[in-house]
């Protein structure tokens, strides 16, 4: 499942939100009244898009809405941790994959945005400072059809809890308007995350932790536990080994983790 290219001006496929959805992509709308109307329209599209959705569905719907409202081909949302980010939802396999690539490398624009708690707009991964700053990520993202990444922090002024990550198939800056829309989606996403159940204990309550959206994270940390036991190392070291093995074998950490937890791959002491 590979989303179609979504370059500016392209007619695009059937748009359930009608012409209003595409209006946000038109550059150069700077008249105050027009801007206010666009703002209202974007809020309406978001409100319509999440209406009737259960808390566990909203993050996925907001990722899809971000793709409708902005010139991007994919979106994903991840929670920040001091180890592997927790990917909660993605609009497509491509978006999920690029997010996993970054989690595997442990470095990239989204992880940097989570760290500094400010938007990071890597608008050209093909050349220039973004490509120089994250060369490995840029190369792997481009191989997956992504040439620009915009990452919006989630949370409040005090703490960044994660990021809304937007992927574009061609290089390009977001307009001020589009950045405002991205902020709006990120704001709604933060509220949506607050509605998810987050009981601490595993399998203890009736409500699944984060509504079952974080199963990938479970697999990765179970794999880390297994590597800890197999090698007698700390969690940090086990994560480093997992990442290194994934990188060396051209796969994501999640893919390797799945092999580990199903006993198809084990790490042996030298």
């Amino acid at each position: 499942m590979r989303p179609t290219d979504d370059a500016e001006g392209a007619p695009g496929e059937a748009d359930p939100f009608g012409a209003s959805g595409r209006d946000f992509r038109l550059p150069g709308r700077d008249a105050g009244g027009e801007r206010a109307r666009d703002w209202v329209r974007a809020s309406d599209v978001i409100a319509d898009g999440v209406r009737g959705a259960g808390p566990e569905e909203v993050p996925g719907r907001l990722c899809a809405l971000a793709v409708k409202l902005l010139p991007v081909v994919g979106a994903s949302v991840s929670l920040r941790t001091d180890g592997m980010p927790v990917q909660l939802s993605a609009s497509s396999d491509q978006a999920a994959y690029v997010s996993d690539v970054q989690a595997t490398l442990g470095d990239g624009p989204c992880m940097y945005a989570a760290e500094i708690g400010a938007p990071v707009l890597a608008s050209d991964l093909t050349a220039g400072q973004d490509a120089r700053r994250w060369p490995v990520f840029a190369q792997q993202a481009m191989a997956a059809g992504v040439q620009a990444v915009y990452s919006m922090p989630l949370g409040n002024d005090a703490v960044c809890v994660g990021t809304l990550d937007l992927y574009r198939s061609v290089p390009g800056e977001l307009t001020a308007e589009e950045i405002r829309t991205a902020h709006m989606v990120a704001g709604v996403m933060t509220v949506a995350l607050m509605a998810l159940p987050r009981a601490e204990e595993n399998g203890q309550g009736e409500e699944p932790w984060l509504s079952g959206l974080a199963t990938d994270h479970d697999e990765v940390y179970q794999a880390i536990g297994m590597i800890m036991a197999q090698l007698g190392v700390s969690a940090d070291e086990a994560l480093a080994r997992l990442r290194a093995h994934a990188f060396a074998s051209g796969r994501t950490a999640l893919e390797v983790a799945r092999e580990v937890v199903t006993h198809r791959k084990r790490f042996d002491r030298d």
Binding site: G83, A158, V159, V161, R198, W209, Q222, G225, V261, R266
Partner: peptide, 26 residues
């Protein structure tokens, strides 16, 4: 702010439990 603290604690807790499960699995 409360949500950030709750979430941070929940992720940390969940992570430790998953690691322990992995150790038992191995």
């Amino acid at each position: 702010a409360q949500f950030s603290r709750d979430l941070e604690r929940a992720i940390a807790s969940r992570t430790v439990i998953d690691q322990a499960l992995g150790i038992l699995m191995a």
